[in-house]
Write a protein that binds this DNA or RNA. Structure first.
Lengths: 232, 232
DNA sequence: CGTGGTATTGACTTGTGTCAAACTGCGTGG
DNA sequence: CCACGCAGTTTGACACAAGTCAATACCACG
């Protein structure tokens, strides 16, 4: 969609100079911890979440390879969310001054990063509308579609069938439901012929119906990048 | 917190060169409309919302003077949310190329805009957790505190008492509740001595209790801007 | 005065949560 | 290799929070 200049590519590569491995289940950043680092996720799947003081957890977002993590340290001294690994992962840590250098030297990269922020924001607001205004069935349908789409962006081979790699507890924490009720909704979607399941693997058997049930909006379509400044 | 250079101030003033008046109840931008403009809200109170296809509405965010509006046009060809005026407002429209020029010439302003994006994001994720995981009473308490704080940022005279300027229907659309239930929760907060009400005016009579009920986190505290590049 | 939007309250319904029990699959250690 | 335990799933019975519907009251405004 956008062809980077050699200089721009080089600047981004410098951010990814170091590597760190994170085990499945491990925590990369804990809410309220001092946080100076940011990361690029190179491999694996992570999530960010917050814990409320009654002990319940809300999962805010799932992260896949290529995502920038802990961007909120741009603004805050302490982390505002917990980031943990859902599978074995590789991340590339970098410091805020390195980031400042990139956006100073490469205005177009700054603009592109803002575009990514806006996409994230649009996805977040969609989720807000889903949590505030839709039924349990719609929420479960929505998260299934979202996960499939995110995975497909990295592996075009994925079409109707994928392993979601999440427990029903986690699905519940992402959708604002209990694990028990997630289970009931999955069963219902299955009974109504929209999905099939075997051993953690989900197959969409009626994608249209699922999208209708979920109020689905594709936030990675309809982009307009014509306004970007020139590359350096 | 950050002192801008004369050049930076000048660049921002150029964005605010034109003015447009928006009547209470009018719509500045409609969801799915072609959207090339962005705005700075100079005066008044607005909100952005989305309409789901079952007709229900989710209010995503309230905007106050100084906020940048329609920032999602940075990424999208069409608007992803409706922005409408809750009171008579004045906005300053500007085009995306003007924005591109600002971030190209003034890296520190680009960085500051990213910081604001991150604050917005943190606020959004808090709301996500509130909608996903807290009771109706907590949601209503949370929105009252949030509105009071936002208003206080513009008028330090506001402390325990303010006019919220929203119908209970709107409170419901923001919290994911029905207007009827919002009413019941307001009554309950009142009966429990946390707030008092007369004619659209709300007074916090026990702020601590209200904050506890709401799971409140102050997202405008704990900022760290030491990493910003130098001003130009 | 009406009239339309908003607020308030009550009676009833429904969606989702809670609790508990059984079941499954899998890794671990004896 | 088996037995055990643990984490996750599935299902049922029941409780409760929030939604729905409807009637009334309260304004502000033409």
């Amino acid at each position: 969609m956008v062809v980077l200049t050699a200089n721009e590519r080089h600047a981004l590569e410098r951010l990814e100079a170091r590597e760190r491995h994170v085990r499945r289940g491990a925590t990369l950043q804990r809410d309220k911890d001092r946080a100076a680092e940011m990361f690029i996720l190179r491999k694996g799947m992570m999530m960010s979440s917050v814990l409320l003081d009654d002990g319940s957890r809300q999962i805010l977002r799932f992260h896949f390879a290529g995502d920038m993590l802990a961007v909120s340290s741009l603004a805050y001294r302490a982390a505002s969310e917990t980031i943990s690994a859902l599978s074995d992962c590789v991340v590339c840590p970098f410091e805020r001054p390195a980031f400042a250098a990139v956006i100073t030297d490469h205005p177009r990269l700054a603009a592109l990063i803002m575009v990514c922020d806006q996409i994230e924001r649009a996805v977040l607001t969609d989720r807000l509308a889903v949590l505030g205004r839709t039924s349990a069935k719609a929420r479960v349908a929505a998260i299934l579609i979202d996960l499939r789409n995110r995975m497909r962006m990295l592996d075009r081979g994925i079409t109707m069938s994928f392993t979601l790699g999440l427990t029903q507890e986690e699905l519940g924490d992402a959708t604002g439901l209990t694990a028990v009720h997630v289970n009931r909704m999955l069963r219902q979607l299955e009974d109504e012929g929209m999905i099939a399941r075997e051993a953690g693997r989900v197959t969409f058997t009626d994608e249209r119906a699922l999208e209708r049930a979920a109020n689905f909006v594709d936030r990675y379509a309809g982009l307009d990048l014509a306004w970007l400044p020139a590359g350096r």
